[in-house]
Simulated assay, not measured.
Amino acid sequence: MPPELICPDCGSEIEDSTDFGVGRRVHFVTVEGDGGVALDPDRTVTLWHCANCNLVVSVS
């Protein structure tokens, strides 16, 4: 059994996809050694939010 996912802000247990808010797609970025940021416009990730308090709790 995988470990429980608990929202660190509100303490809600995330048991299945209905416990997530709408995932938001954002561009993938890389922070370079000199502090610069490189945007990869062809790659995106989804930020998953706690449905209870809207904190980002996962990335896919």
Rank of each mutant, 00 (worst) to 15 (best):
V45K: 10
W48D: 07
G21S: 05
G21H: 04
G23L: 04
V45R: 10
V56D: 08
G33M: 10
V57W: 01
R43G: 02
R25V: 06
G21E: 03
V37R: 13
L5P: 04
T30D: 12
T18Q: 08
F20L: 09
S17P: 01
P41S: 09
R25Q: 14
N54V: 06
D34T: 00
F28Q: 13
E32W: 00
S60W: 08
P3C: 05
V56T: 14
V45I: 12
E4S: 15
R43H: 11
V22W: 02
L5G: 02
D16M: 00
T18I: 04
L47Y: 06
C50P: 01
C10T: 01
F20P: 06
G33K: 13
S58G: 15
S17Q: 09
D42K: 14
T46M: 02
E15T: 12
V31W: 11
I6D: 00
I14E: 02
S17Y: 02
G33W: 05
N54P: 00
T30K: 10
V26R: 14
S60D: 14
T44L: 10
F20V: 05
G21N: 04
S58H: 13
G36D: 15
V37W: 06
P41H: 09
V26S: 05
S17K: 11
A38Y: 12
V29A: 11
F28T: 12
W48I: 03
G35F: 07
V59M: 14
N52V: 04
H49M: 08
S17T: 06
G35E: 13
V59P: 03
V45S: 05
L47M: 13
G23C: 03
S12R: 15
A38R: 15
L39T: 14
L55Y: 05
D16N: 08
P2S: 09
N52I: 01
E15P: 00
G11Q: 07
D19T: 00
R25H: 13
T46N: 04
T46C: 06
D40F: 08
F28G: 00
V29I: 13
V22F: 12
E32H: 01
C10S: 08
V29P: 01
F28P: 01
D34V: 00
M1W: 01
M1R: 05
V37E: 13
S12M: 15
S17C: 03
E32C: 10
M1Y: 02
D40A: 09
S60E: 15
E32F: 01
C10H: 07
P8I: 08
H49K: 07
V56P: 08
R24A: 10
S17G: 04
L55W: 07
E4R: 15
C50A: 05
F20E: 04
H27Y: 13
H27I: 08
P41G: 06
T46D: 06
I14H: 09
G35S: 07
P41R: 11
N54W: 11
